[in-house]
Amino acid sequence: MSLLEWSIAILVMAGALFVLLGSFALIKLPDFYTRLHGPTKATTLGLGSLVLASMLFFNFVQQQLSLQQFLIALFLFISAPVTAYMLIKVALHQKLVPMLNTRHQDLMKQRDNLAKGNDLPTVEKLADSD
C-alpha cells in the first residue's frame, strides 16, 4: 500500500472512531446538556475526516474528479451548530434537570426573565452567585 492509501486508511478509521465516540457520549454522559456535546463536536469532525478520505480516494486513487463530497462537509459544518442550538433551546424550554454539580443553574431560571430583556445580571454578580 502506498503512502496515499495509508493516509486514506488512517482518515477513514479516525472518522469511524470519532463517529463511534459521539454515539458513545450519547449513552454514557449523565444529562441532556452534557450529552449534546458529543454529537455536535465528535460526530461532525468524524464526518469531516471521512469526507476528506473519500475526496482523496476518488481524486487521486481513482483519478476521477469528484468534489461533491465537499458539499456534504460544508452543509454539515453549517447545520450542526444550528441543530445543537435548537435542541438546547427545547431542553431549556422544557426545563430539563441538569446533573447535580452543574454550576450556575440559576441562569436557567433567570433565562425567561432575561429573554424579556429585563434584569440582566452583570458578570460580577454571576461570579458571586457560585
Partner: peptide, 13 residues
C-alpha cells in the same frame, strides 16, 4: 431527538 439526529449523521457516514 438528539439520538435521532445523530443517527441521521451516522447513516451519512
Amino acid at each position: 431527538l438528539l439520538a435521532l439526529d445523530t443517527m441521521y449523521i451516522n447513516s451519512i457516514a
